[in-house]
Design a protein around this nucleic acid. Structure first.
Length: 275
RNA sequence: UGACAUAUAGUUU
């Protein structure tokens, strides 16, 4: 089912699930979550709900239901079906299921995608009042949601809170925060974040680099962008098309057509075509 | 003994 989903065959993936059911094979939650994940990948949220109902109809153990509901919330969340997401959460609770970190992270992603960062924050309060400890993913998701709503101060508060709570930021946290450095003065903050990453031994990856290149570009610090790119390149960071795109975007702010063409050539030399 | 599943970050405003 997972292989079919990877190949874009979500319909056949769901048929396989039905075939299993038709033969009386019992509910393995892995199969259902794989099927719901396939629906999510291709925006088939109605099918995700349908698949969840099939799982529920089998009256499986609590942990299977948890996985199923969480996967469904994720699927509807990605499709921005907020009402459906809220219904699912309510149904979970009504069925005596206690939302866990996965549930809340999926809820925060859903609210973030819908631009309602206030609701992402409410989710944090809810989980805390229910005694569910926010983990790294929950914090990262919340920070991303807040930054999407341009709530930089609140995002920084959360960053502080995770540190105080003994959850050190990871490369995704830093990348998220860096991607929120949108004002012209923010490149200095970006540099101090990079220095901090270095001091705690977290290596920037291609996504981190892309985010910082954009920060420099937005700030008009094109030379710094080029310098950082070269530094990372020499350090062996694996560059992808996004890195090149971001650097070309930054360089173009100063209208250096030659430099852009040079970068484009370098990109092709490395076997990367334009996207 | 082993394999498999659900949540978070980057460019194109």
């Amino acid at each position: 089912i997972k292989a079919l989903a990877k190949g874009g065959q979500w319909k056949r993936a769901l048929q396989k699930l039905d075939e299993m059911r038709g033969r009386g094979l019992s509910a393995d939650p892995v199969v259902y979550t794989a099927a719901i994940g396939a629906c999510e990948k291709y925006g088939q949220w109605e099918k995700a709900l349908e698949t969840l109902s099939k799982l529920v109809a089998e009256k499986p153990p609590v942990y299977s239901l948890m996985w199923g509901y969480n996967a469904a919330i994720s699927a509807l969340g990605k499709a921005k079906q907020m009402e459906g997401v809220k219904d699912l959460l309510a149904t979970m609770r009504a069925s005596g299921l206690k939302p866990d970190e996965y549930t809340y992270a999926a809820m925060m992603r859903a609210t973030g995608l819908n631009g309602v960062w206030e609701e992402s924050l409410s989710m944090l309060s809810e989980m805390e009042s229910e005694g569910v400890r926010p983990n790294l993913v929950v914090y990262n998701t919340l920070i991303a949601s807040l930054l999407k709503g341009d709530q930089n101060d609140k995002a920084n508060d959360i960053l502080k809170r995770m540190r105080d709570g003994g959850i050190p930021p990871d490369v995704r946290t830093y990348t998220t925060i860096l991607s929120g450095c949108k004002r012209a003065v923010d490149w200095k903050r970006a540099e101090s974040l990079l220095a901090e990453m270095d001091s705690v031994g977290i290596k920037p990856n291609s996504r981190t680099l892309t985010a910082v290149l954009k920060v420099y570009g937005d700030a008009g610090e094109v030379d710094r962008a080029v310098a950082l790119f070269e530094e990372c390149d020499e350090a062996g960071l694996h560059m992808d098309v996004f890195c090149f795109n971001a650097l070309m975007g930054a360089v173009l702010k100063k209208d250096h057509g030659d430099k852009v063409l040079e970068l484009y050539g370098m990109m092709e030399e490395r076997g990367m075509g334009p996207d």
